[in-house]
């Protein structure tokens, strides 16, 4: 019996890292948007709380419903950070929903996508940050 109590106690206080396996998804349970403090979810959070980038995304917050109106400024840099590879796919093809959404966010829906396609190697050079990608795109269109 003592053995069983020890095993249960051990499990209760284990504090393992297994929770990472649950991740931010799931049926609510296990959704921890701050988990790992990196990647997409953290970027979303950081962008909305002025945590790192100092900018707001297009009006969302992770922890609350974001009822403050100041949060409604679209942030295309955050969009690039969180959709970088989907955006790079679309730019390389010269079409796609991610590229269309980005162009809508920077208020350039009728930009020439083929110009961006032709300059793909420069725009998405591996060392380029989201801000640099943004600058290059806006200069080209």
């Amino acid at each position: 019996m003592t053995k069983i109590i020890f095993i249960i106690a051990g499990l209760l206080f284990a504090g393992t890292t297994a929770s990472a396996a649950y991740g931010p998804a799931g049926c609510g349970l296990g959704a921890n948007l701050m988990e790992g403090k990196s990647g997409l979810m953290y970027n979303v959070f950081a962008a909305t709380t002025n945590g790192t980038s100092g900018n707001q995304t297009f009006g969302m917050t992770s922890g609350t419903l974001g009822c403050d109106g100041e949060a409604s400024v679209a942030n295309s840099v955050t969009f690039i950070e969180n959709n970088k590879f989907a955006l790079s796919n679309d730019v390389s093809k010269g079409e796609g929903a991610t590229l269309d959404a980005y162009l809508a966010l920077i208020n350039a829906p009728s930009a020439n996508k083929l110009v961006l396609k032709a300059n793909f190697a420069k725009i998405f050079a591996p060392e380029n940050s989201a801000e640099q990608i943004q600058v290059m795109i806006t200069e080209l269109i």
């Binding site: 499990l11 209760l12 206080f13 284990a14 504090g15 393992t16 890292t17 297994a18 929770s19 649950y22 799931g26 049926c27 609510g28 349970l29 296990g30 959704a31 921890n32």
Partner: peptide, 14 residues
């Protein structure tokens, strides 16, 4: 989304 605010790393407590 509707989800729980998980405050433990322990799978059993979870």
């Amino acid at each position: 989304d509707f989800n729980a605010n998980v405050d433990t790393n322990n799978p059993l407590m979870y």
